[in-house]
Simulated assay, not measured.
Amino acid sequence: MSLNFSVNNNASAASILSNLQYVNNEINTSYQQLSTGNRINSAADDPAGYAISQQMTSQVNALNQAVQNAQNGISMLQTASGAMNQVTSILQTMNTLAVEAANGTENSTDLSNLNQEFIALQNQINNISNQTKFNTMTLLDGSFASASSAVVFQINTDGTSNSQLSVTIAAISVGALFSPSVLTNSYLQITSQTLAQQAISAVQAALTSLSQYQANIGAVEDRLNYTVSNLQNTADNLQNAESTITNTDMAQAYTQFSQQQVLQQVGLAMLAQADQQPDAILKLLQ
């Protein structure tokens, strides 16, 4: 076995230093994985895993936004439905007034008083129609989500029609609820027994139409609720799959970290020993 006594080249120390640098890099990686909880903190940690995780993260983010879109849609429809409930209550009162006015025992003064209340209720219907808004958009005056211009909810992650839901919301103003043929000066009137009898039929027809509008809105709300549940389930499962790729196995990572610390300490000790090998040359010169 030959001995290499060289001052200019300490091969043992160089080899140990190279190994020590590798261990130090591994320790730094372990520090990052343990402190962040992520096994993949950059593409260098796992190029394929990083690419897959980014795709999954993008899809999860899109799914979560779709959930928010659907929930906003539900809130909008609930706003419209709540206003329609108020109009239904008004129509029920109007129906009662019309039935009262249709009775032959009411004199002209009685009919005039009943008609004043009847018109005031219709003004309130118009007020609800004009003032019911969601995100500054008027919902019930016919200018929003009409049959010719439905509102479209984006309820999934792609740009196809499968990810979209079109919704229409009917106008509920006096002019929309009642046929123009039964209106006098833009109002339903009950100033006579005949007009009151006509009003009964008109109000009951409006109640039927309004009930149908509310049923349609309720059906869309149900669909959106099911959509939210499905999207949340999909997002949760995809998030779990992404976590298995990117999250740190803390027990395994700490075990490796402990091994690397031992290797670092041993490497430093061996480097110190290797650095002393050139001292042997001095003994030859004594």
Rank of each mutant, 00 (worst) to 15 (best):
Y226K: 09
S166Y: 07
N126C: 06
S12A: 14
I245S: 02
V182F: 02
A98D: 06
S173P: 01
L91H: 01
Q189H: 02
N237G: 08
N135T: 06
V167C: 10
K133M: 08
S209E: 11
A101Y: 01
P180M: 12
Q239R: 07
Q124L: 10
G82A: 09
L77Y: 05
S258L: 07
P180W: 15
A205S: 14
L231E: 04
N41S: 06
Q259P: 03
V87L: 09
M137K: 13
N162K: 13
L34P: 03
Y226L: 06
L188V: 03
S2G: 12
S12C: 03
N216Y: 04
A171G: 13
Q33L: 05
A206P: 00
S146R: 04
Q204S: 11
N28G: 04
L34Y: 02
L282T: 04
Q71D: 14
A269G: 06
Q197T: 11
A199Y: 04
A48Q: 15
V152I: 10
T136E: 13
Q212S: 09
N61L: 06
Q259M: 04
A102E: 09
S192F: 08
S149L: 08
D45G: 01
S18M: 09
S81N: 12
N162L: 14
S42A: 12
A70F: 02
A253H: 05
L97G: 01
L231M: 12
S209Q: 13
N25A: 12
D110S: 11
T246V: 15
I74W: 00
S229W: 14
N24K: 15
Q259V: 03
